[in-house]
Deep mutational scan, measured.
Amino acid sequence: MPVRRGHVAPQNTFLDTIIRKFEGQSRKFIIANARVENCAVIYCNDGFCELCGYSRAEVMQRPCTCDFLHGPRTQRRAAAQIAQALLGAEERKVEIAFYRKDGSCFLCLVDVVPVKNEDGAVIMFILNFEVVMEKDMVGSPAHDTNHRGPPTSWLAPGRAKTFRLKLPALLALTARESSVRSGGAGGAGAPGAVVVDVDLTPAAPSSESLALDEVTAMDNHVAGLGPAEERRALVGPGSPPRSAPGQLPSPRAHSLNPDASGSSCSLARTRSRESCASVRRASSADDIEAMRAGVLPPPPRHASTGAMHPLRSGLLNSTSDSDLVRYRTISKIPQITLNFVDLKGDPFLASPTSDREIIAPKIKERTHNVTEKVTQVLSLGADVLPEYKLQAPRIHRWTILHYSPFKAVWDWLILLLVIYTAVFTPYSAAFLLKETEEGPPATECGYACQPLAVVDLIVDIMFIVDILINFRTTYVNANEEVVSHPGRIAVHYFKGWFLIDMVAAIPFDLLI
Rank of each mutant, 00 (worst) to 15 (best):
A78M: 04
F22W: 13
W154F: 12
F98N: 01
S331C: 13
L212V: 06
G236T: 08
R76L: 10
V8M: 15
D219H: 11
S104H: 14
G314I: 05
A78N: 10
E177M: 06
D259H: 04
A228Y: 06
G306D: 10
C52M: 09
R62Q: 13
S272Q: 07
G184E: 06
C39T: 06
R280H: 06
R77I: 15
E23H: 03
Y54S: 01
L385T: 11
N128W: 06
M218H: 10
T145I: 06
L248D: 13
N220Y: 10
L378Q: 04
A228I: 07
K21V: 13
L15W: 12
A32Y: 01
L316D: 15
C276P: 11
D259N: 10
S243H: 15
S278R: 09
Q11C: 14
F29W: 01
P10W: 15
R100H: 14
P227C: 01
L343R: 14
C265F: 07
F106V: 05
A156G: 15
R35H: 15
V196S: 01
R326E: 09
S354T: 15
P151N: 11
A228P: 14
L212K: 06
T375C: 11
V384D: 08
V374D: 05
N12M: 13
T270Y: 05
N220V: 06
A188I: 06
A203W: 03
D342P: 05
D355R: 07
Y43D: 01
S153A: 07
V377Q: 01
N339Q: 06
R326N: 09
M218P: 15
K21T: 13
P227R: 05
L167I: 14
L349T: 12
P237H: 15
S266L: 11
S140K: 14
L349E: 11
A121M: 04
S179H: 10
P298D: 11
N45M: 01
P237D: 05
G262P: 08
F48E: 01
R20S: 09
G246I: 15
D346N: 04
A85S: 11
K93M: 09
S178E: 10
P150N: 07
L86V: 08
E134H: 14
A360I: 10
A142F: 15
D355W: 07
D111M: 05
D16E: 09
L315I: 15
A188G: 06
E23Y: 01
I336H: 14
A32R: 01
D46N: 15
M308V: 12
S207A: 15
Q61Y: 03
G139N: 07
V194E: 05
T319R: 05
N339D: 15
I336Y: 14
Q11P: 12
Q25W: 13
V341P: 15
T216D: 06
C66Y: 01
A172E: 12
S264R: 12
V132S: 12
F129G: 01
I333D: 15
A9N: 09
V215F: 06
C105G: 08
F22C: 07
V384P: 08
L69E: 01
G189H: 06
G53C: 01
Q335P: 14
P63S: 15
N12H: 15
K101M: 01
E23L: 01
H302E: 08
H7Y: 06
A172K: 06
A217N: 06
N339M: 01
P334A: 03
L109S: 15
P241A: 13
N369W: 11
Q81Y: 08
K21Y: 11
E50Q: 15
P168E: 13
G139W: 06
D287L: 12
E357P: 12
H254M: 13
S354W: 15
G139V: 13
Q376A: 11
E365M: 07
D286I: 14
A172P: 14
K362P: 06
I19L: 09
R269A: 13
L343D: 05
R159F: 12
A244F: 01
D321L: 05
P297I: 11
P150I: 06
T329W: 04
G183Q: 14
A382S: 04
A204N: 15
A277L: 07
A228C: 05
A34T: 07
T216G: 14
T329P: 15
R271C: 13
K28Y: 06
Q81H: 06
L86S: 01
S283P: 07
L210M: 15
A228L: 14
L109D: 11
G238A: 04
H368I: 11
S313P: 11
R35F: 15
V325Q: 14
K362Y: 11
V8W: 14
V138E: 15
